[in-house]
Design a protein around this nucleic acid. Structure first.
Lengths: 197, 197
DNA sequence: CGTCTATTTGAATGTACTCAAAAGCGGTGG
DNA sequence: CCACCGCTTTTGAGTACATTCAAATAGACG
C-alpha cells in the first residue's frame, strides 16, 4: 500500500471519489515528517494546516497559567489534528500541537481546503459527517471525564486508544486524564496489585 | 415576530434562503409544547426528532449506575437538542432529554431531515458549520470542566448561560458542573460572603 | 394547609494534589 | 562502553478539594 492510500481510504468510507477526483484531492496535500517532540502548532500562531497522521502520534493541548500541559486529544494513525477555530477563522490558536513520536503526516492548507469545498461540493458532506462523528466522540469523552473518577477515566482511555499507553509516557496520559503523574502512578500500582490477587 | 421566525433567523445567519425555500423548510417542522419536567427522549428509545427550542429550557443528560443525573448540555432559546448518535443511526439513545420549564419547540423528524439534505444541498453546509461550531464550543467546555476546580466551572457556567442560574434549580446546575448540590450550596455561600466583604 | 422536593448546614470520609526525595531509565559525549 | 545528566516514575507525608450521610430548614405546588 502506498503511503498516501490511507487517507483516501478514510475518505471513501464516507463519500465516493473517482480516479480523477482522488488524484486531484491528493495533489492538494503535502507530506511532512517530524521528529519526536517537534511543534506542529504553537498557541498564539495561526493554524495554517489541517494535519492527517499517517504514522506516529500527536497531542493537541493547552498550557495553563501554572505552566501545566493539558491534553484535549491524541491524534494517532488516521486521525486529523488542527486547532479548528484558528483554522476556520485564521485567528491565533488557543491550542498547541506537538509530536510524541517520530511522525509522518499529510497536510492541507486553508486555501486548498477551501478549493476542495468549491470544486468538489460533496466534501461538504464529508466534513459534516466528520464533525458530526467528532462531536459524538467528544461528547462521550466529556461525559466520561466530567462525571467519572480517575480510575474509570483511565479505563476508558485504554479502551479508546488501545496500546497507546505503551507508546507514550505516563506523564502524557496523566495530562489527558486531567490528573497528576504521581496520582496516575499510584492508580497503576493499585491496579497491578489487584490483578495479582 | 411570528413564533417560527426565530428558527429561520438562525439558519439565515449561515446560509441564504429564498421565500419558497423558507416556506418549504418550515413545512417540515411541527410545533410542540411541553410542560415542566416532561420527557422529550428517554435513554434507550430511538431519537426520532431534532428539537429547536423557541422558548423554555431543556437538559440533555444521562443517568449513571448510582441513579444520578449528569447533564451534558442545556438547550435554551434558539438551541437545538437531540441525541445525535441515536438520531443519525436510528439506534437506542444513550442520553435522555427533559424539560426544566414549560417549553415551546419546533421539531423535525429524521425523514424530513433527510429530505432537507436531498432537496436543498446547501443544508449540508449549514449542518457542517453547525457541528463545527458545536465542536469548538464543546472542546472549550471540556477543557474548562476537565482542568478547572468547581469554582471556576461555576463562573464559566454563569458566563455561558447568563441568567440561567436564576431560572433553574441549583440541583440542575450541580448536575451540569459535575459536583454535588451540597457542595454547590457551599460554594455559593462562600461567594456571597466574599462579595459582601 | 400539608406534602414533597430543594437547599442549607455540619461532621466524617474519600479522592486527588502538592511538595520533596529517591529510584529508574535513556540518551549523549568522552 | 560506561559514566553522567536530565527527565520520568515511584513513594510518602501532609493538605486541599469534594463527597456522603444525616438532619434541619425553606420553598413550591396542589
Amino acid at each position: 500500500m502506498k503511503y498516501y492510500e490511507q487517507i483516501v481510504e478514510q475518505i471513501k468510507k464516507i463519500i465516493e471519489l473517482d480516479t480523477n477526483e482522488t488524484e486531484w484531492f491528493l495533489s492538494l496535500f503535502e507530506k511532512k515528517t517530524y521528529k519526536k517532540k517537534e511543534w506542529i502548532l504553537r498557541s498564539g500562531e495561526v493554524c495554517k494546516y489541517e494535519t492527517f497522521v499517517l504514522k506516529g502520534c500527536l497531542k493537541i493541548f493547552y498550557t495553563d497559567q501554572q505552566g501545566t500541559d493539558n491534553t484535549v486529544k491524541f491524534a494517532i494513525e488516521n486521525w486529523w489534528a488542527l486547532d479548528l477555530q484558528s483554522f476556520e477563522t485564521q485567528t491565533p490558536a488557543f491550542y498547541s500541537i506537538q509530536t510524541l513520536e517520530d511522525t509522518i503526516t499529510f497536510r492541507i492548507s486553508r486555501e486548498n481546503h477551501l478549493l476542495l469545498y468549491e470544486k468538489i461540493p460533496k466534501f461538504e458532506k464529508y466534513k459534516r459527517m466528520m464533525y458530526q462523528n467528532a462531536y459524538i466522540l467528544l461528547q462521550h469523552r466529556m461525559t466520561q471525564q466530567l462525571f467519572e473518577v480517575a480510575e474509570e477515566k483511565y479505563q476508558h482511555f485504554t479502551d479508546k486508544y488501545p496500546g497507546l499507553e505503551l507508546r507514550i509516557s505516563q506523564k502524557e496520559i496523566a495530562s489527558y486524564l486531567g490528573i497528576t503523574p504521581e496520582f496516575l502512578s499510584m492508580l497503576r500500582k493499585k491496579r497491578m496489585e489487584q490483578s495479582i490477587s
